[in-house]
């Protein structure tokens, strides 16, 4: 199952609490900030290793964020990759 999340805070937290094995989460819009290593650590760092975490590259770029500042587990997609994630996962839940 694919979760598309567009903001941090409660929305991301509610989503993360419901992720289970082999789920995929895609961070878009303001949620890409959750990919960045923070102190204390972001909720993303607590996820089990069998959950795939993606961030939308253009939303990172627009906000001046680069991969070096992010958790190593994050994978990056452009819009074509976004479309592929939607194609390869069902159902899709948009969290906003």
């Amino acid at each position: 199952m694919l979760y598309i999340v567009n903001k941090k805070g409660e929305v991301l937290k509610d989503c993360v609490e419901r992720l289970t094995s082999h789920d995929v989460i895609l961070l878009i819009e303001d949620a890409v900030l959750a990919a960045v290593k923070t102190s204390p650590s972001s909720v993303i760092s607590t996820l089990a290793s069998d959950i795939s975490v993606y961030a939308l590259r253009s939303d990172m770029k627009a906000r001046g964020l680069d991969a070096q500042r992010c958790y190593e587990r994050i994978q990056y997609v452009d819009y074509a990759g976004f479309v592929e994630l939607v194609e390869n996962n069902k159902p899709v839940r948009s969290c906003f």
Partner: peptide, 16 residues
């Protein structure tokens, strides 16, 4: 929550 998740996986579309 875990039983809901099992059901969600078999859904075609989710609305919020």
């Amino acid at each position: 929550r875990s039983d809901i998740k099992k059901r969600l996986r078999s859904a075609d579309h989710l609305f919020g």
